[in-house]
Design a protein around this nucleic acid. Structure first.
Lengths: 145, 145
DNA sequence: TATAAAGTCTATCGGATTTATAGAGTATTA
DNA sequence: TAATACTCTATAAATCCGATAGACTTTATA
């Protein structure tokens, strides 16, 4: 399961992508529409700003807006930003790699191989799915489930 | 990431499958070999016993042993037993289903669709991978990575 | 039948993480 | 220059995780 933080982040991003023609969007609006606690959301948006995905404008008429193209923001990056590694085991990540004490030989470890597969597929799907594809898929109501 | 509990469980199961001809295996042996805290491991093995995967024998010459066939114990079931749902969001699980407040229409929610895909692939891989396949893959040293 | 071996059960613990809130402070712009 | 809106720091409650302690029960076998 992903954290609420990550989930809120994705929902906020999708909204910002959807409304990106409208100029800066108020935190309070995102918060209300998405039922996301406002103060919590503030911290999340700041993180996304630091990550170079959003920017904000202060003062009257201010708010947050997307600075990356929707097709450039993929789910893998967002999830990693908030929840760290996507893999199920530390020994199949590169950024958070850690050897497993329990396993004698990593090269032949059967458990690791399975988890490696899961990670590869997960990353593939999440990389392919961007704000653009998510928005597009919202529009087509009848979908191959 | 999966919990240590789940990771320990899998390692213990793989060992029990590997040594299943030797009769009951001592908790202390599994603990030592896998560098798993013994008391913690006891609780894990009890859970696996309650789940009908292992059985135990008390007294001298006792220990734990597999009662399911290695090809019947798959990773999806084990992970679910210890960590709950495999999905990344509550709205794409059936056993732990929970509606997302943030989303207006679940049927058209683009985020949900992505997470659904990830879940389907993850479950597919984990279901296909059993103690038997893990053991088999350990034996073949040179592997398509 | 005593006793040692081995699993079972209950309780508890500290620490980390997660989720969330409060409030003061700062920058911006109409 | 006031209203608006973002930023920062602190904190707190709740939950979860990993681990340990210790008393208890069952069983094999000498």
């Amino acid at each position: 399961m992903i954290s609420k933080k990550a989930k809120y982040a994705i929902h906020a991003l999708v909204k910002l992508a959807r409304d990106r023609e409208k100029g800066p969007i108020l935190i309070s609006e995102i918060s209300k529409e998405g039922h996301i606690p406002q103060k919590f959301l503030e911290a999340i948006l700041l993180d996304l700003k630091r990550a170079g995905i959003l920017n904000s404008k202060k003062g009257k008429g201010g708010g947050y807006y997307l600075i990356k193209k929707p097709e450039e923001v993929n789910m893998a990056d967002v999830l990693r930003l908030f929840d760290g590694a996507l893999a199920l085991l530390p020994c199949v990540t590169y950024k958070y790699y850690e050897r497993c004490e329990e396993c004698t030989d990593e090269l032949t470890c059967g458990i690791r191989r399975v988890m490696q597969q899961v990670r590869d597929e997960t990353v593939r799907i999440l990389k392919d799915s961007t704000l653009a594809t998510v928005l597009a898929s919202e529009k087509s109501t009848y979908k191959e489930q």
